[in-house]
Nucleic acid binder design. Structure first.
Lengths: 124, 124
DNA sequence: TTTTCATGTTAGAAAACCTAACATCTTGTT
DNA sequence: AACAAGATGTTAGGTTTTCTAACATGAAAA
């Protein structure tokens, strides 16, 4: 539904995102460098984030805390995107199994993490 | 519901509120001067608005466009607050009738205004 | 023990925001 | 018509926030 629009509107300055995610500006910019988020830019070049961006950042945070590194995180996100775009395609079996294992680990840890899951339901 | 929390979180800088409401910074600050909105302030004294604040600003805008002045708007808001807090109380009859007339006018014009009503459903 | 990875820190510049004051344009009054 | 009041525009000078880029560091991998 149209709630996609709201969640993708770039309205949050980095300072607020820092508070919402408990990440430093350095971390947020670093993840952007790795193309994990692509905040909008104002005319004056200031980053503006959407709620979806915040969600992504929280997911990244959780995975990093679980020990996953940038490379792994990138793959997970690439997966998600692919599973979303295509209806699933040519993915090497080994890779698929590794990813699934990761996703399941994430899912499990989600239940215990209680406060830092990959969504903002606690704020909304 | 907890969606009250989300809508009252001060996360929007004035520049974004300007876009969302199509008001100038001058106008927004002027309405604040009249205590119609009370944005949160960062440590560095920057205003931060909530979605509720944006709603209020849109209501103000509509009423002003309809010709209601600050004084009238203040009363309408005072009414709403009172009707919310108390269960309705001692209000002079003339005043009550005047206010009701205004509210009805607002309600009617709402139907035609189409895009600038006092809510953000178009964004969400 | 070297690299590599993720993050900290700092410097200098630019953008966004702030308050305060004065200007302007309507509109209602006298 | 002249005036007072209300709402908004504009400007100036100052402060906060954000940006990029570079270099530093601690921990883990190789």
């Amino acid at each position: 539904m149209g709630s996609e629009i709201r969640r993708s509107m770039p309205v949050l300055p980095i300072s607020i995102v820092m508070q919402l995610t408990d990440l430093t500006a350095r971390q947020i910019r670093y993840y952007e460098e790795h193309n994990l988020v692509q905040p909008h830019r104002t005319e004056g070049n200031r980053r503006m984030f959407s709620l979806n961006d915040v969600d992504v950042l929280l997911e990244i945070k959780t995975m990093l805390e679980r020990g996953t590194n940038m490379a792994g995180i990138k793959k997970v996100f690439a997966m998600k995107k692919r599973a979303d775009t295509d209806g699933k395609k040519e993915i090497s079996d080994r890779e698929l199994r590794r990813i699934m294992r990761e996703e399941m680990l994430q899912a499990r840890s989600m239940q215990k993490t209680s406060i830092r899951q990959g969504n903002l339901s606690r704020f909304y």
